[in-house]
């Protein structure tokens, strides 16, 4: 059945595909870290008793979550240079380049999703835990960092990973600003060499292996961070 197939095309394209994969992984990792940090802050804001924090965070999250990712990437790429020009008055101002604008777009977009995950995680920590922390004299940040977030994140690990996998797969959207990730690289080679089936099969296999390994790793991590009982 595979007699018509030419799997050598994969071997020849490996360096290029590797480059694309490094780009995908790099962008995923950076956007994930940035998204989780920003998402945590947004979640704390949304759960704040102060309206001035709650409302802007809620608006931001709802706005970003109702916008397609591809649009956010697009906007950032084209709007940032315009904004820079407008602010600095320098009509030759360049944007921040496709990579940085994509990174910011992904981070801001993912932060909205992470915010909702983390908010649920924080709410899963019993109120008594917060009271106990407060009763010991811990202030808001001490109670949040020492007592609430460690327990919240422990509960959230699987769903944070799921979101990370979605993000990893979404990095292929960077083609709209002319960047090449793993999927983009595979796609380009496939079109160039006319080997669509082989390349797309290979890409699917790689995605499967990586995502499977990631969930395996998270399972192990989870059993390690669960306190003994």
């Amino acid at each position: 059945m595979f007699t018509d197939f030419d799997f050598d095309v994969i071997e020849r394209a490996l360096p290029y595909l590797w480059q694309g994969m490094m780009f995908s992984l790099g962008l995923t990792l950076l956007a994930m870290v940035g998204g989780i940090v920003l998402g945590t802050l947004l979640a704390l804001m949304r759960l704040s008793s102060y309206k001035v924090l709650r409302v802007p965070a809620g608006t931001y999250v709802n706005l970003l979550r109702s916008t397609p990712l591809i649009l956010v990437i697009f906007w950032f790429y084209f709007l940032v240079p315009i904004a820079v020009k407008h602010i600095t008055g320098d009509s030759y101002a360049q944007g921040i380049g496709p990579f940085h604008s994509a990174l910011i777009a992904f981070t801001l977009f993912e932060a909205a999703y992470y915010c909702e995950i983390i908010r649920a995680g924080i709410q899963s920590v019993p109120a008594g835990q917060v009271q106990a922390a407060q009763a010991l004299g811990l202030n808001y940040w001490q109670a949040t960092l020492q007592v609430v977030l460690p327990q919240a994140f422990r509960n959230m690990v699987p769903i944070l990973l799921t979101q990370g996998i979605i993000l990893f797969q979404d990095t292929s959207l960077v083609y709209v600003v002319g960047l090449t990730d793993f999927m983009g690289a595979a796609s380009k080679v496939a079109q160039r060499d006319g080997r669509l089936v082989e390349m797309y099969l290979f890409a699917a296999l790689i995605y499967f292996i990586l995502c499977y390994l990631a969930s395996f790793f998270v399972k192990r991590l989870q059993s390690r961070i669960t306190p003994p009982r």
């Binding site: 019993p126 008594g128 835990q129 009271q131 106990a132 922390a133 407060q134 009763a135 010991l136 004299g137 811990l138 202030n139 020492q146 007592v147 460690p150 327990q151 422990r154 306190p227 009982r229």
Partner: peptide, 22 residues
């Protein structure tokens, strides 16, 4: 300063509320 005041008053809860991750 509530945290400062609370630090001087011990409290024991019905459900213990020990921190399970420590």
């Amino acid at each position: 300063n509530l945290p400062q005041l609370r630090a001087k008053i011990g409290m024991v809860f019905q459900n213990f509320e020990l921190f399970p991750h420590m």
